[in-house]
Amino acid sequence: MSALYSVRGLVKRYGVKSVLEGIDFDLARGECLVVLGRSGTGKSVTLRHLIGLEQPTSGSILFESLEIVGRSERELQPVRRRVAMLFQGGALFDSMTVFDNLAFPFREHRVCPEAELAGRIAALLDKVHLPGTERRMPADLSGGMKKRVALARALALEPEVLLFDEPTTGLDPMTSASIASLILATQRSTGAAALVVTHDIALARRVADRIAFLDQGRFRFLGTFEEAEAAPDPLLADFLAGREEADDVA
């Protein structure tokens, strides 16, 4: 199967601070790759590069055969129509109702006439188990509900790739589990590829076809969850088991 995304030698530095030191991976159609790593290791930065929200210091990102690096905002538009991102806090437009938030991608790209919007939006809200919330404002929603509305918005244009930035951070375990189910269900029903950035091991175990472990700007491990558990890497083993850092213990 041909890769949807191929990332090679991705390096990102902010001034003298180095975040990514050469990331390589492929994302196949329909695959779910979970990037694990400690806070502040550049997981979200990696994700943001994939739709050109950040430009790398060097490296290459191919979406199908299109090079994303160095493209202008206008040139990135076709890619952004096919790849949707779910932001960490949901990033719902807080001046708009849930309905207008979900209508935004449809209106922006003139996908359908205004009259069809209500039906389409109701269907999206059903998918994320929040029927009847069209008139609510984002400020009136709980953290988990915001993420689900944001997921519905991300699904609006039937993307081929879904990028999830910490989809369960700040949520209780039960809500996290329901988000994980939603990710799985979405992937199954739409066949979209997913790239999930998280430090939630339980989520990774449930949804990942493959996991990558990001440490000091590089993928220290890339393979299936079972391979990760069998890998002779003490840091990865500590991370998966949720043990304290050796430095901290001493």
């Binding site: 905002e73 990135l76 952004r80 991102m85 990033a91 719902l92 437009f93 922006e108």
Partner: peptide, 17 residues
Amino acid sequence: TMKVTEQIDALRSMAAD
């Protein structure tokens, strides 16, 4: 506020200017 809560990025990610 929209910038720091990633709403500007969300706009860009949906191919809006």
